[in-house]
């Protein structure tokens, strides 16, 4: 059952990612990316990371991507035009990427295939209580620093988007 779920959602994730790369219109790309994120959330649940799965749904697909879709609709510029300037990237980039993927897969398989396989239910330390405990004890300083970062980001976004201030 684990394997079937994994294969299904891994395939959905890869298909959505490829679709995101191929679609001409940003809205289609954004929706495909949401598909990737939702299937990754399912995989997180399979890995025992319940809280991260929920955070993935709430933060990524519920807030960040809504922002993306909102901006795309606000600008409403239509589909992307083909470019003539990306010739080098196309000719050189594609084979290099395939090589990157092949090498990465080879290294990963060599290094980790002997490790114990993932079994659903074997790891249960990913609930909200455990994550929250770690976050507010051992990782308290990074947590506070991140909150300051977000404050700065809010101020920056407000300053940038507010045209009348100049």
């Amino acid at each position: 059952m684990d394997l079937v779920l994994f294969l299904t959602f891994a395939l959905i994730a890869v298909a959505c990612a490829i679709n995101m790369s191929l679609q001409r219109h940003p809205v289609s790309s954004a929706l495909s990316l949401i598909g990737v994120m939702v299937s990754l959330a399912v995989l997180y649940v399979l890995l025992g990371a319940e809280f991260i799965a929920a955070a993935q749904l709430v933060v990524y697909s519920g807030a960040i991507m809504v922002l993306f879709v909102f901006v795309i609709m606000l600008l409403n510029t239509g589909a992307e035009k083909m470019s003539k300037k990306a010739g080098t990237a196309h000719f050189l980039g594609f084979p290099l990427l395939v090589i990157l993927l092949a090498v990465a897969s080879w290294v990963i398989t060599n290094a980790t295939s002997a490790m114990k396989p993932v079994k659903f239910g074997a790891f249960t330390g990913g609930g909200p209580r455990e994550v929250g405990w770690e976050l507010f004890t051992r990782y308290l300083l990074p947590f506070e620093v991140t909150s300051i970062l977000i404050l700065i980001a809010i101020a920056g976004a407000y300053r940038l988007a507010n045209k009348e201030m100049d």
């Binding site: 809280f51 749904l57 519920g62 879709v69 909200p128």
Partner: peptide, 22 residues
């Protein structure tokens, strides 16, 4: 009966906006 029941509802509520926006 899941551990993250309320987060699930909040997440789906956030996703619900896509129906209307699209």
């Amino acid at each position: 009966d899941i551990n993250i029941g309320l987060l699930w509802i909040l997440g789906l509520g956030g996703m619900g906006v896509y129906g209307i926006a699209l």
